[in-house]
Every structure is written in structure tokens, then in C-alpha cells.
Simulated scan of single mutants.
Amino acid sequence: MRFTPILVGCTLFSLLLSGTANAAFHPINDSVLTQNKLYRSGKLKPSECPERRIKPNDVPSAKRYLTSVMNCLNASWGTYFKRAGLPFTKAEIGFITKPKRFCGQPWGKETAGTYCDAEQRFLVILDDDTLSDPSDLYLFQVAAHEYGHHIQNITGMGRAFEYHPYKGKSELNEQIRRNELQAECLGGVFTGSVWNSLDRTEADWEELLDITRDSGDEHSKVRDHGKGRNIAAWLDKGFRATSPAACNTWTARAPQVS
């Protein structure tokens, strides 16, 4: 199983990059990934998801906050899948306060949350890094991102990604980036669909995008999540569209998933 966590601290979508990036493009030839019915099922219906209060460095309030977000995620996506005629299973959430093995893998350095496809559950770490300043939307997006992996799992895209062939580390990393960027975009779709119920401003959204731009592969030795500007671009694209159709990273040009 591929293990692809969201990193801590993880808009223009048309990125002007050099033509050399196109030469490294590795096409995806699986219709489950490129033509999934999820892309043809319309927008998420606007719904209510008011945020609960959360205190700095307070684990109990963080658990209540994220549990509330999780309830919204299950309700919103459940309604969407029912309308689309797609099979749906709720995801579950758990919490840890220090790194531990999960889903057969060690907890990654600077990892905030990880989804396990076999358990249909994800864990969020509630430590000093994630709870020191919880006033922004970061924790909200961690949950929305990990739920994006759940959406990939129950639509068959998770399994298709896991078994898609690749030749070499470069192609593998590009496939992992496509998978991670899609989850980020799907997280943005949900956030956009509930935005009007949040007591937030455009400045709050821009702050989250800034945080996201600072979380890319530029700060890591591994090139498996994408450049910060690309992560932010996919997040914002999903947020503006409120539709999974915006999140087909599997057919995107190489520069958009670099």
C-alpha cells in the first residue's frame, strides 16, 4: 500500500513553467482515474458547517472541533454520492498526541494527518505544531484533505492509483503527487460548499493559501506532494468550483502536478 500523508504547514492555476517539464510527463492510462463518474456528478450542494470554538494547545476542544467537521464531511459527501447514484461509506476519524505506527507504517516526520484505505479511517495528530495557533483554517483543511483520500478510496481511484504501473522513481513520484493534489482539491471542494456557513472572510482563505504555499516539496527532500504553489492552486480551484470535476489531476499537464 502506498503511504501518502499530508504535511504540516502544507491563485492562479495557469502556471507558466518551462517546456522541459512537459518532457517528464507520464500519462495515466486508467479510466477509473481519468474518467471516473465522480467527475460527472455535478457540484456539492451548499450546506451548513459552522465551526466550533477551539482553544490553543487544547486537545479536548480540538477533538470536538474536528469531530464536528467530520460529521459535516460525512453528511455533505453522503448526500452527494446518493444523488449521483454512487455507493457511499462514511469515513471515521481518530486522534493521537504523539507519532505512532498507523496502517502498518511509521508516522511520517511533520505529518499532520494520514488516511488508511483498509480501515476507511484517518488519524490527526494533535501536538504543539498543530495546536499552537488553531485560529486559521489549517485543521479544517487537514480533515477535508484526508477525507479527499476517502473519496478516492470509495470511488475506486485509490486502488487504481495503488496498482498503476510505473517505471522509475520519477514516474512514481509524479503519480503520488497527482493523488495528493487531487485530495487537496477535493478538500477545497468541500470547504467551498460550506463556506457561507463559516464565520470567515476572504482574508482567512488567503491566509490558508499562504500556509499551503509554504508547505510544498521545496521544504522536503522527497518530491511527492507537489510545489507549494501547485498545492495552493489545486486547493483554490476546488474551492472556487465546488465540484469534483475540477479535481481531475490525472489528466493535468506535468507542470500543474510538479
Rank of each mutant, 00 (worst) to 15 (best):
I211G: 04
E207W: 07
L186A: 10
C185W: 12
K169E: 14
T201K: 06
G188Y: 09
E171V: 13
E207S: 10
V194H: 09
S170H: 14
S220K: 13
E218W: 03
N196R: 12
S220E: 11
N196S: 09
R177T: 04
L186P: 06
N196A: 01
D214L: 07
G187R: 05
A183D: 01
I176Y: 06
D199S: 15
Q182K: 09
E174S: 10
L181Q: 14
I211P: 04
C185G: 12
Y166Q: 02
N173C: 06
A183I: 04
Q182L: 09
E218Y: 03
N173V: 00
D210F: 08
D214F: 00
W205I: 08
L208C: 00
E174Y: 11
E180T: 12
I176F: 08
E206F: 07
D214S: 11
D199E: 14
G187Q: 02
G187A: 01
T212Y: 07
L186R: 08
D199V: 06
S215D: 03
E180V: 15
T191E: 15
D217E: 14
A203E: 14
E171H: 14
N173L: 10
E171A: 12
T201L: 05
D214N: 13
N173I: 03
L198S: 06
V194L: 07
C185M: 07
E218G: 14
E202W: 10
S170Y: 13
D204M: 02
V189K: 02
F190I: 02
Q175A: 05
S220H: 15
Q182T: 09
Q182A: 04
L181F: 12
W195M: 01
S170T: 15
L181R: 02
C185Q: 08
L172T: 03
R177D: 03
A203H: 11
C185S: 02
K169V: 10
E184R: 00
